[in-house]
């Protein structure tokens, strides 16, 4: 298994773990009351912002740890640059990821159109963000394994 394949798997697992752990941490803090109250909007806003920051920080730390473990276990250095194959796979993964997020965004807007509560819109948006991240990692894994 190549460095990129391993990295895609680690990225996929870490994305799922970060999201699940973060949701488990935030779920008990869910405020009661009216669905469009100020507290509720504050809750969802901070949910998305903190998740984004935590996710970026955790991915950086996990990537550093992965590189150290990769060097120790294989005795190889990780590739220092992205070549044309890496860039092409990144583009394909980004496209798939983007499509999933846009579908989620449209569904979220649709939920407002059919008068669903505001929290449904936020849940769909957050879920599509998570799914798009997962699809991006799976696409990378697939293309590194099967080619482009």
């Amino acid at each position: 298994m190549t460095y990129q394949e391993k990295k895609s798997i680690v990225s996929l697992i870490s994305s799922i773990l970060i999201f699940v752990l973060y949701c488990l941490y935030r779920y008990p803090l869910y405020p009661g009351g009216a669905p469009d109250s100020k507290e509720m909007l504050h809750y969802w806003g901070s949910f998305v912002l903190v998740l984004t920051l935590v996710s970026i920080a955790a991915h950086i730390v996990i990537s550093i740890i992965f590189n150290i473990i990769f060097r120790i276990t294989t005795g190889e250095k990780e590739p220092a640059f992205a070549d044309e194959l890496d860039k092409r796979i990144d583009l394909l993964a980004f496209r798939n990821s983007f499509v999933v997020f846009v579908i989620g965004f449209i569904l979220a807007m649709g939920s407002l159109v059919i008068d669903r509560p505001l929290e449904v819109m936020f849940v769909i948006l957050i879920a599509s963000g998570f799914l798009s991240d997962v699809i991006g990692s799976v696409s990378r894994m697939y293309h590194y394994k099967r080619g482009v």
């Binding site: 460095y3 990129q4 590739p79 640059f81 070549d83 044309e84 194959l85 890496d86 080619g147």
Partner: peptide, 10 residues
């Protein structure tokens, strides 16, 4: 040729 080893493998 200025690529990674993984590209040669592919």
């Amino acid at each position: 040729v200025g690529v990674t080893r993984q590209t040669i493998v592919a």
